[in-house]
Write a protein that binds this DNA or RNA. Structure first.
Lengths: 104, 104
DNA sequence: AAAAAACATAAGAATCGACTTATCTATTCA
DNA sequence: TGAATAGATAAGTCGATTCTTATGTTTTTT
């Protein structure tokens, strides 16, 4: 729930890939595992880290778990980032472009 | 320079503290070490990680190095974040507001 | 010129993180 | 009911990180 746990969670490429996948909608653990060359427990452990960081939430559905991105999960990171806004001016052009995209 | 290196660099609390300190202005390595219960080489190694991630830059000044936050160092993180903008609407609004302020 | 100061690099120890296999629970299906 | 499926947890291995001490380089001070 704090930025420390979140940055640690995001430091791993597998977990970032899982988030990427979840950004396309809910997935269960088996679906999250697809294409990943690792065991089921490894996936389960990654999921635990993401949940511990508050980045995902889950819902039990029969014998499977449906995972989804937690809406406010990234908030501490955004807050943290804005502390460095004083250093962004040189990148404004690029950020403006992003902003325009976000507005669509 | 990519988000992988940046998230790894940010995963360490000592390095985040150093960035925090640098957000108050330029510091040399000795100043960055103040208050940290670790050896000089440990500090030097953390600095190397931050530089490797593109988060800080340096300037030699006599026998000391002046470090400062690199203006667009955090840009890949912002880019990465905006890919998930659909999942944390309210925080993105704040970010957008900030960017608009900078735009003026 | 010698000593001190600021920092980097090397090598090794200790700790942490990401995996593995084995096993457990809960649910569904035959 | 018994077998299969979905997932979590436990314990151990291994490589990556984060420290340490030792030492090297460059610049400043005396």
């Amino acid at each position: 729930m704090n930025e420390a746990d979140i940055f640690k969670a995001l430091a791993d490429p597998t977990r970032r890939q899982m988030l990427e996948r979840l950004s396309g909608g809910e997935r269960n653990a088996t679906e999250l595992r697809e294409g990943l060359a690792m065991s089921q427990p490894a996936v389960s452990q990654h999921i635990a880290v993401l949940r511990g960081a508050g980045l995902i939430e889950e819902e039990k559905s029969g014998r499977q778990m449906r995972y989804r991105i937690r809406a406010d999960g990234m908030a501490p990171v955004v807050d943290w980032l804005t502390r460095y806004r004083g250093f962004w001016p040189e990148r404004v052009e690029r950020l403006k472009t992003l902003l325009r995209e976000m507005d669509q």
